[in-house]
């Protein structure tokens, strides 16, 4: 399958990329790892006349220690996220989720930024980013703006990134003293999540002091399970009490029905997987 013809530019700085986007008009697409965009272009579901490849902008790749947060370049590929030492130390949830994306070849090319802007409801990176209370840094013709993860995911395959803008960095607060776990449910290897749960738990004095729960594929956007979070705050470190708190996981969700499962099945999965994720994050 061959995409429609397009012009191609590979800028080496963000400033050049923004200029190219501004000049190219409506029919332009940003290319990151290409692991979602190229398949879509081959199917001709996207047929941009201009493609701006971010692959040669070195300032967009890598993980840096920035005081009380980590700054991750949007072009950092999944396989680096999965193995990076800073991420393993301060945000292991992100590493664990990245290791479940697709297969090794796709993880070598696909990027964190691409996965977030693509915003597939079944994508594995948005829910952890939401649970980690990350901030997304976006550059555009009028400068840079920072968007809280809670405001970034706006709908089905839709984010706060506007035409002419580029997601440049993901800022994640350093988490010390938290446990985390990403629990992904799939049918076979190399599969998108049917449902998955990203859990962050802080245990203090034999009880859960705080919890943050992100849900994958339970609506058109990733969701926080705020009811579960509230019920877990102060909850005893005990399986039955945690299970009771996690029974609210499906509240306020709007999961789709498809060949992998109907909405009722997904609601049930969300409760079971939230319990598993929280137990594991709490070290039980």
């Amino acid at each position: 399958m061959i995409p429609s013809p397009f012009d191609y530019a590979a800028p080496t700085t963000v400033a050049q990329a923004l200029d190219l986007l501004a000049d190219a008009g409506d029919d332009v697409k940003v290319l990151a790892g290409g692991q979602s965009l190229i398949p879509v272009m081959k199917l001709r579901m996207a047929d941009p006349t201009m493609v701006v490849d971010l692959g040669r902008i070195s300032e967009l790749t890598g993980v840096t220690d920035d005081g009380d947060s980590l700054l991750i370049g949007a072009m950092t590929p999944h396989h680096v996220i999965a193995k990076d030492l800073l991420i393993a130390t301060y945000a292991p949830l992100l590493a664990q989720a990245a290791a479940t994306v697709a297969d090794p070849q796709v993880r070598h090319r696909g990027t964190l930024g691409g996965a977030l802007v693509h915003a597939d409801p079944a994508g594995d990176m948005p829910a952890p980013v939401l649970a980690l209370d990350a901030t997304l840094v976006v550059a555009g013709p009028h400068g840079e703006r920072s968007i809280a993860a809670a405001d970034f995911f706006q709908g089905y395959f839709t984010t706060a990134v506007q035409e002419g803008e580029i997601l440049t960095h993901i800022r994640i607060p350093k988490y010390v003293g938290w446990g985390s776990h990403y629990e992904k449910f799939t049918r076979v290897a190399q599969q998108w999540s049917i449902v998955a749960v990203a859990a962050m738990v802080r245990v203090e004095g034999g009880a859960i002091a705080a919890a943050r729960i992100g849900l994958t594929n339970m609506a058109s956007t990733p969701l926080r399970a705020r009811g579960v979070e509230a019920a877990l705050a102060g909850c005893a470190l005990e399986a039955d009490a945690i299970a009771t708190a996690c029974a609210q996981a499906a509240d306020g969700t709007e999961p789709a029905s498809d060949l992998n499962g109907d909405a009722a099945y997904r609601r049930h999965l969300s409760q079971v997987l939230t319990k598993r994720a929280v137990l594991s994050a709490a070290g039980l």
Partner: peptide, 17 residues
Amino acid sequence: LDGVSVKSCTMFAVQAD
């Protein structure tokens, strides 16, 4: 590509420049 595996049906030749 530079020593790591990729699926060559999901990459443009220009990206390998």
